[in-house]
Design a protein around this nucleic acid. Structure first.
Length: 801
RNA sequence: GGGCGCGUAGCUCAGCGGGAGAGCACUCGCUUCACACGCGAGGGGUCGCUGGUUCGAUCCCAGCCGCGCCCA
């Protein structure tokens, strides 16, 4: 048996990835028996590359999937891609720009074909990158949100919501990105602190009795003012309510109104109302029946009914002109610096322009209620549990969802209009207007928000709306794992869609994993240059080590990336490799393997305790503790004590056979975390009947470990520390000799040891002499202290005093 | 502005009512017949600060100071 002393994952990992997939061991067969265990992977953007979040989440999901597969579950890990409307369109638009053309030049059909061509060439590489991490996704079942079948599911969902009466078209304020040229949902808006100027402008009263001053960070929108609002209880302004004022620049006459949504503490307490360009003003305007004027257009420039010198200017340029106008007319009270959070498009980074636009909306309240019930009743549970409330708070305050996007790449709305403006909604292209029968139909140009299709992922991937064997067998699934910022965008919507369309939750547990930050504590991001590429880590340390390290970092709180965790994984792989070498070097024959010695029974008990611990950790989605547990089992128990204890008997086939049986269990327990090295070692073990990936998970064992090992360990601690040998006999003595290999006379620093133990006894006695402690502390705590005292007294005896 | 979380060894993090822990780094000793990516020993911590509750507080409560995230 030729095995290198240094385990090298390269080549080994790729080989096993090929074999597992070629032997279809990742494949889920609905015809096969067994309780199911199903996870649908969060579909990465089809344009994306593996980043740290994917690698962490892949390690988490694969650990769960592999353990359940070994436990005999009919296990499906569903792979696939999201078409990622805005992101993908932006990539292809950039390419067109580099070629000196644009989507408008080539037209919609050619553009969409161009996107498909781009994807065929460059898209979808991330699934291969999941393979290099060892992720056991059922790659045969890869789905794409733009597949024909998936498109049918999306259309069905839309038609369903339309029939329910929850979809409606309305002019409302939206978050407009002038760079992406589309509206985006509230959830795609990122709030960033910005240093602005707060401009205080005087609006003269029409009756000539002075003026009212309002503060604004966006002077350009003064041109669209339709009212001034004050809080009804604000005594400073009570007498002004109902009075008319004149809007600067445009000389429009508007009224002072009262509304409780005005914050008297902001600025002067008087608020200019611009329903066309501010979400709160929009709400106030609707309630007061105010006009919705728009002065900033879709390209972010001034438009519409503005004085000539403003037309076509950017908002900033227009703001300067307005401020100058105010100065010239002595209506500028002051300007002061002001720092506040401003919405930006998370995709392009452009400052959001709130404006009124005709869009399709979905009333989410009815679906949200079902999701609220599911979470409150515990049918769907978030981990860590604090996230349940986060999801509930959002669901309880849910607002209509703007589902239309002014893009070309995506699912075009199944909405047709006839010349009379009637609306027809249908799965497939209708022949005539549903209302008037007109055959002259035009399809709505807009496409759906990417997340509209994502909401269907857990069942559209299984064939819904068709009644497929997969859908019947694998829905509902079990677990979904994702990052915090996806809770509303995706998790909540999957729960709502699943309940609405299939009448059942899509999964019962949602893992919200930690965010891995850059080593300096900032976010990992491409633009900041703080990203660390998991593919480099795999190249440097191997996939097993990377998985181990990432799981070690997967505590519930956010964590700074530390490469040393991955190096720890690499050392663990090497340690296990060499432990296996030790046994294999003695010969790999198979013999009867009944544990006969105390150390054999002890290691089996330790392994079984670890098995139970790992099962409990994974049931609680506590991966970092599971991994730590395995590390100590292998380094401390298996290598430092068990293997050292049996070393003198290694030429005995019986001993090796028992050791192989123990090693086999260790490999099984570690496999979900480090699949490659464990499968590689497994393949060298004598007479394995199957691949480790599908080998049965260890059964609970009924081994009790005697106290001999513990006695030897105590003696070892004392001897190694002070050179003092304490009296042992029988197995404890034999194991101590084998592991510690003592030299010298065993006299050592007896005085120091005696002093240490006496101190302990004194401390313990003092504690137990405290009547209040004995009276008030929990009985088991007092008992534990008494036992410790007993132990120390026994140790004192053993030291021969 | 609302909510959540975090400040524990030089670093990354566990622990969260009864003697401060792990891995790495550091010091010292080991060419022990698997592994120096190893084995053994050791140094290093007013557990952010100030109060409170308790027989007992890193752990619970309040306030403060830092840091981060989510939502508006």
């Amino acid at each position: 048996m030729e095995l290198a002393t240094l385990y090298n994952p390269h080549g080994v990992e790729e080989r096993w990835q090929r074999i597992w997939e070629a032997e279809r061991l990742y494949h889920a067969d609905p015809e096969q028996p067994g309780e199911t265990f199903v996870i649908a992977v969060p579909p990465p953007n089809v344009t994306g590359a593996l980043h740290m979040g994917h690698a962490l989440n892949g390690s988490i999901q694969d650990a769960l999937i592999r353990m359940h597969r070994m436990q005999g579950y009919n296990t499906l890990w569903q792979p696939g891609f999201d078409h990622a409307g805005i992101a993908t369109q932006a990539v292809v638009e950039r390419e067109l720009r580099n070629e000196g053309t644009s989507r408008l030049d080539i037209g919609r059909d050619a553009f969409v074909e161009r996107v498909w061509a781009w994807l065929r060439e460059y898209g979808g590489v991330i699934m291969s990158q999941f393979r290099t991490l060892g992720c056991s996704l059922d790659y045969e079942r890869e789905r794409f949100t733009m597949d024909d079948g998936y498109v049918r599911a999306v259309m069905r969902f839309f038609v369903h919501l339309y029939a329910r009466g929850w979809l409606f078209r309305d002019n409302r304020i939206v978050n407009w990105c002038s760079d992406c040229r589309t509206s985006i949902s509230d959830l795609e808006v990122e709030h960033i602190d910005v240093d602005d100027a707060l401009t205080y402008a005087r609006y003269p009263l029409m009756n000539g009795e002075g003026s009212v001053t309002v503060a604004t960070v966006r002077p350009a929108t003064i041109l669209a003012d339709v009212a001034i609002a004050v809080h009804p209880d604000d005594e400073r302004y009570t007498q002004l309510i109902g009075k008319d004022v004149k809007v600067p620049v445009v000389n429009r006459t508007v009224q002072v109104i009262a509304d409780e949504r005005v914050d008297p503490a902001f600025g002067t307490g008087a608020l200019k109302i611009t329903p066309g360009h501010d979400p709160i003003d929009f709400e106030i305007g609707r309630d007061h029946g105010l006009e919705e004027l728009t002065v900033i257009g879709l390209d972010g420039r001034m438009t519409g009914d503005v004085p000539e010198e403003y037309a076509g200017k950017t908002e900033d340029e227009a703001a300067e002109l307005v401020v100058q106008w105010l100065k010239d007319h002595d209506q500028l009270e002051k300007r002061e610096s002001y720092r506040h959070a401003v919405g930006h498009c998370e995709r392009s980074g452009t400052r959001i322009q709130p404006l009124v636009s005709l869009q399709w909306w979905c009333d989410m309240k009815p679906m949200a209620q079902a999701a609220i019930d599911a979470i409150e009743s515990g049918r769907v549970t978030f981990h860590p549990p604090a996230q349940n409330r986060v999801a509930l708070d959002w669901l309880k305050n849910i607002r209509p969802w703007n589902v239309s996007r002014q893009l070309w790449w995506g699912h075009q709305l199944p909405i047709w209009y006839c010349p009379d403006g009637h609306v027809t909604c249908a799965d497939t292209e209708p022949g005539a207007c549903a209302e008037c029968g007109s055959a002259d139909l035009t399809r709505d140009e807009d496409v759906l928000d990417t997340w509209f299709s994502s909401a269907l992922w857990p069942f559209a991937t299984l064939g819904w709306p068709e009644d497929t064997p997969e859908l019947r067998r694998y829905y509902p699934g079990d677990v979904n794992s994702t990052a915090r910022e996806i809770i509303f965008l995706w998790e909540a919507r999957m729960v709502m869609a699943g309940l609405e369309l299939l009448g059942d939750i899509p999964f019962h547990d949602v893992i919200i994993h930690s965010t891995i930050l850059a080593p300096d504590g900032r976010r990992m991001s491409k633009s900041l240059g703080t990203g660390i590429d998991p593919r480099e880590l795999i190249g440097k340390h191997g996939a097993d080590a990377t998985r181990y390290g990432l799981l070690k970092m997967s505590s519930t709180q956010d964590v700074r990336f530390a490469e040393q965790q991955i190096e720890e994984g690499r050392r663990l792989a090497n340690k296990l490799w060499n432990a296996s070498r030790l046994l294999l070097l003695g010969g790999g024959e198979r013999a009867a393997s009944e544990p006969s010695s105390v150390e054999e029974r002890w290691i089996l008990a330790r392994i079984d305790a670890t098995r139970a611990g790992v099962e409990a950790d994974l049931a609680a989605f506590d991966f970092s503790h599971a991994v730590e547990r395995l590390y100590h089992l292998i380094f401390d128990d298996f290598c430092d004590w068990y293997l050292e204890a049996i070393k003198p008997r290694l030429d005995d086939a019986q001993t090796r056979a028992t050791a192989f049986a123990a090693l086999e269990r260790v490999l099984k327990l570690l496999h979900p975390v480090m699949p490659h090295v464990t499968e590689e070692i497994w393949s060298h073990l004598p007479q394995r009947e199957s691949r480790l990936i599908v080998a049965p998970w260890p059964e609970a064992a009924d081994e009790s470990a005697g106290g001999e090992i513990e006695r030897a360990q105590t003696a070892a601690r004392i001897y190694r520390r002070s050179g003092v040998r304490i009296a042992l006999e029988g197995d404890a003595q034999r194991i101590f000799e084998a592991v510690v290999r003592p030299t010298g006379d065993g006299e050592g620093d007896l005085a120091a040891e005696l002093g240490r133990v006496r101190n302990e006894i004194e401390r313990s006695e003092r504690m137990l002499a405290n009547e209040k402690f004995v009276a008030n502390a929990a009985p088991e705590v007092v008992d534990a202290e008494r036992q410790k005292l007993e132990q120390y007294r026994a140790e004192l005896d053993a030291l021969g005093s």
